[in-house]
């Protein structure tokens, strides 16, 4: 008996519509986040992450409605991230039915947001998302970036992860901006380094292309969960196929 490693499909949602679409057999509306979330729920996903990429803050009422609808039909944990700036945003998302809220850029500009929200709502619902890139100076160091990997922050990744854990984050969502979209596999060295450096769970993200990449995320990367978008959305693999492969590789999963 042990804690199962988690498989987390991620939906990118813009104004209530899933972007990139989803390739499921018999799906009525490939852009409907509610139908897609329910499919993943039924398929055996362990959690669902919903990344809101709606540019305008004013249009976010749609986001709250979508979260409410997903939460009333999906009975596995739901994480919502994207555009979270203040404690009031977190409260609204939790009240709409999110189980966890992921904070990214706002944590960099205002680290106390993490501390304050963890104290107010509990660490269990505060995820800190980190977008990192390897420095090309041969130092082996990684730096935190914002704006989809375009803007460096000068913040070293491992120190940041430790600081966020100290501030009360309950989990870290680590995305390699070098690997994101490449299908070359997770950046294993930084995943391992951060997983070893903190006591809270780490979710590996960015770069999955094959089933063995997922295995490596757990075995070599030491991740507690793996996040994937395109391999699921485009129907490359089903959640069941992923879980069967992980089980064969000796990874504890929820059957």
């Amino acid at each position: 008996m042990s804690l199962a490693k988690r498989i987390i499909p991620c939906l990118d949602v813009d104004q209530g519509r899933v972007v990139k679409g989803v390739n499921f057999v018999g799906i009525r509306d490939a852009g409907d986040p509610i139908e897609i979330a329910r499919r993943y729920n039924d398929a055996g996903a362990d959690e669902i992450t919903f990344l809101d990429i709606t540019a305008s803050h004013e249009q976010r009422d749609t986001t709250y409605r979508t979260v409410e609808q997903i939460a009333s039909q999906v009975f596995i944990p739901l994480t919502v991230g994207g555009g979270v700036r203040a404690v009031t945003d977190i409260r609204r998302l939790l009240n709409a039915g999110a189980d966890k809220v992921s904070i990214n850029t706002a944590a960099i500009f205002n680290p106390d947001l993490v501390r304050e929200s963890a104290e107010r709502f509990g660490s269990q619902c505060i995820v800190v998302a980190m977008d990192v890139k390897a420095l090309d100076d041969g130092s082996g160091r990684y730096e935190l970036f914002t704006h989809g990997g375009r803007k460096p922050t000068g913040i070293e990744a491992i120190e940041w992860a430790q600081k966020m854990a100290d501030f009360g984050a309950g989990e870290i969502l680590l995305t390699s901006m070098d690997r994101d979209g490449t299908k070359d596999g997770y950046d294993l060295p930084i995943t391992r380094a951060i997983s070893d450096a903190v006591d809270i769970p780490v979710i590996a993200s960015g770069g999955v292309g094959t089933l063995d990449h997922l295995v490596a995320g757990f075995t070599e990367g030491g991740a507690d969960a793996v996040l994937a978008a395109s391999i699921f959305h485009f129907g490359t693999y089903t959640v069941a196929e992923v879980k069967a492969h992980l089980a064969q590789s000796g990874i504890a999963i929820r059957a």
Binding site: M1, S2, L3, A4, K5, R6, D46, S123, Q124, G170, E171, D196, D199, I200, P201, V202, D224, A225, R254
Partner: peptide
């Protein structure tokens, strides 16, 4: 916190367990 075989165990205990 760690397992009997020395594997590090994260806290919170977060996820699916039997």
């Amino acid at each position: 916190h760690s397992d009997a075989d020395g594997t590090k165990l994260k806290v919170p205990h977060m996820g699916w367990n039997q």
